[in-house]
């Protein structure tokens, strides 16, 4: 089945017309929806509820782009993808953008014909073990069996880290998140390793989260962000600046509740499309950023709603706080 999908993706790549190349915006507007690649289910980042509604901070980036281009944050067709499937899906034009906890690396950015449009979550790879194991540092993991998801930066980082620390391990690799977690739950492995955000998210999905501990070591940098195909600069700009709009809105203090408040702050008025003509540069109507903030909210709203301390995932802002608040979240200026 999977192979079939892959082979057909390759043949789509072979036969798809040139037209896919440019004009993603035109395609999106003609279709009336943004085809957005997300994970198969990672609570807080991208997950569908029982009624099929997707939520999460990665989902919010898709919604922001839909609000910007179509004026409707719900006009998104979500395409759930495993780690292995995601890049081929984007290359072949099956999706318009990928927003699926994907790490920005030079290989992916420079050799896959793709471009990363920004970072919506700064992450790092961590380890989770069962509390009953009585381990409190990753350096005690020598000889352990480690559950990993195939086709991720995770498996590369782990090999690097183990090598430089002289730690031996056996890897247990699965294609899907579901099987990886099932393996960890069943005790096929001693440790689960992935992006720390993913660990927190998966811990909430276990029967008793208090039975699992996330170890303190973070062994890599995982800047996660949205990705587009290379060669369509307009679309690239739209995705990048939709995310920047959410971050800038937090900087300025505009929330979904206060979008209509007219102020004498010129930057705020520019961001809300009430002055200036930046919208022309990206080829959208002047209310594109207004729609994003009104319908999706600013970055802080999205963060707190999906993964913040008041949610079961319970992640503190940490490095993902604004640069003015001790974090590294930073948007180029709207001017």
């Amino acid at each position: 089945m999977k192979q079939l999908v892959k082979f057909s993706v390759a043949s789509v790549l072979a036969l798809s017309a040139f037209a896919v190349q440019a004009g993603t915006l035109q395609d999106v507007q003609a279709n009336g929806s943004v085809k957005c690649g997300v994970s198969k289910g990672l609570a807080g980042f991208s997950a569908a509820d029982s009624s099929g509604t997707w939520t999460g901070i990665d989902v919010d980036v898709c919604r922001a782009v839909a609000a910007a281009t179509l004026g409707d944050a719900t006009a998104v067709t979500f395409v759930p993808l495993t780690a292995k499937e995601r890049f081929t899906a984007l290359q072949s034009g099956e999706i318009d953008m990928l927003s699926r906890n994907t790490t920005w690396t030079i290989t992916r950015d420079a050799s896959l014909g793709l471009n990363f449009a920004g970072v919506n979550y700064y992450d790092g790879q961590g380890f989770m073990v069962k509390a009953s194991l009585g381990i409190d540092t990753a350096y005690d993991l020598g000889g352990a069996a480690v559950c990993i998801q195939a086709g991720t930066t995770t498996e590369l980082n782990l090999a690097d880290w183990a090598k430089s620390n002289g730690i031996e391990y056996t890897s247990v690799v699965s294609d899907t998140n579901a099987q990886t977690t099932a393996n960890y739950d069943a005790g096929r492995c001693d440790v689960l390793t992935t992006d720390a955000s993913g660990l927190y998210s998966q811990r909430t999905a276990t029967n008793d989260p208090s039975e699992h501990v996330v170890l303190p070591e973070i062994i890599s940098k995982e800047p996660l962000g949205p990705v587009v195909r290379q060669g369509d600069d307009q679309w690239f700009n739209i995705v990048r600046w939709s995310l920047n709009a959410m971050i800038t809105a937090e900087e300025i203090g505009v929330t979904s509740a206060t979008v209509d408040v007219v102020s004498n702050n010129p930057e705020r008025e520019r961001l809300m499309g009430r002055s200036g003509n930046t919208h022309e540069y990206v080829g959208l109507s002047s209310d594109w950023t207004y729609n994003i903030i009104a319908q999706v909210g600013n970055y802080a709203e999205s963060f707190e709603r999906n993964i913040g301390l008041s949610t079961p995932i319970g992640i503190a802002r940490g490095v993902n706080a604004l640069w003015t608040n001790g974090g590294i979240l930073y948007s180029a200026p709207f001017r």
């Binding site: 892959k6 390759a10 072979a14 195939a150 086709g151």
Partner: peptide, 18 residues
Amino acid sequence: AAFGGTVLNQVGQAVEIL
């Protein structure tokens, strides 16, 4: 799994690998 899957994903060259 190992070559047509993992290597493909890490390298991204679908045509050659498949």
